[in-house]
Every structure is written in C-alpha cells, then in structure tokens.
Amino acid sequence: MYKIVVPGDFLSTDIRRAGEGTYVENGKVYALRYGILDDKDEIRVVPLSGRYIPKRGDVVIGRVEDIMYPYWVFDIASPYKGLLHVSEFPAKVEYGTMDRFLRIDDLAIVKVVNVDPMMRVELKLVEEFRPPLHGGRLIEVPHTKIPRIIGRNGSMIKILKEEGRCFIFVAKNGRIWIRGNERNVDLVAEIIMKIAEKAHTSGLTDRVTQYLRAARGGKNVVRNKAH
C-alpha cells in the first residue's frame, strides 16, 4: 500500500512536483531521506525517524533549561534551544525576577515565531495556556509519529479524547501533555506509546477504538490481557 524509499532512490523526472524530503539533480527527483513515499500531488518523502527541527508556526511544549536575562532558554526536544523574551510574558518582568514567573524545569506551551539561518529559535507564549503548565503528565514520542497520533483530520486524537476522557495536548516536537483522572491518563499514555510504536501499520484507528472500548467495558479483564 505504501512504498518505503531510501536516500538516493530515483522518484520521478517531473521536477516541478519535487517536494519535502527530495532533491533534484540533472533533471531528476531523488529521495533525500529514508521514509515513506507520498506521490499524490507533490512528491514527498515522509521521514520515519529523525530529530525535531523547529519551523515557524509550530506549537511545541518546552521546558525551561536556563534563565539568561532577557530570555528564558527552552529545551524543545530538538538540537536547537528556543528563546522566549521577557516582553512576551503577559506581566511586567524586571531584571532578576524572571524566576518568579517561570523557573527552571517549568513547562510551557510555546509557538515558534521565527527561526533564523543560524537556527536561533524565537518563541512566544500561546495565550490559552498560561505558563507554567500545572498537573497532568508529559510523555514524549518521536516527533515523526505525531501525524499518526492526530490521525487524518484529527480522527485519532478525537477518539483518544472522547473515549479516554482526558485533556490531551499534542505538540509538534513529540511532547504530549495529558491531564485527567489518573486511571484515564494511564490508559491514554499507554495507547499513545503503542500508536507511536506501530505508526507505520494500517487500520490503527479502528484497533485503538476497539481497545479503548474494551478497556472501558471490563477494566480489569482487558488490562490483564494486555500484560
């Protein structure tokens, strides 16, 4: 159903359709990455692995790693650090008081405003989520699996939220924040890890629905079977 390509594989002669994960040489399109070929309109190679590289507009979950006035330095699960300027904070922050608002190891949902050619990453806060994040649980999966966890038009995440009865925030960098009843969080976290593991298989959404419903029906029975 899908085709796996490796770097250097010949894909097409139609260079106008060359998209992400490909490169053009001598009028031909080749794969630049190891991944799944998407040949619908644009020719793209969707990577199966790799580190998260920030892009403008991405919403990510960051962890404060350092405070260097006038910036909070965020670890965003990437080779590059994100910088949040004090002026982005919805309060007046004076020199030397930054740790009253966000301390080291605090979590925040932030948006990438700009990435310069040197890969310096500027962040801003996402208004709906006042930092730091309180409660809940943070889990981390490879960022390449995020589209699978969201599903086509959000089908998978919708099921997870409804059947899992949790608040789930999925960020582009592979971090997922789940908040709710401890038991529900356990279940949702377990399923998300499984989806990430089996991201390249088909029919996942149906299997997840079945599993979640079964877990709801007779909690103990199903949980024993899973282990």
Binding site: P7, E25, R33
Partner: peptide, 11 residues
C-alpha cells in the same frame, strides 16, 4: 545514518 533520518544524497 539513513536510519537516523539524516538527509543524504545516497547511500
């Protein structure tokens, strides 16, 4: 390198 998802022109 390919397995790590590093962009490469070929193996």
């Amino acid at each position: 390198l390919a397995d790590a998802g590093i962009p490469m022109k070929g193996l």
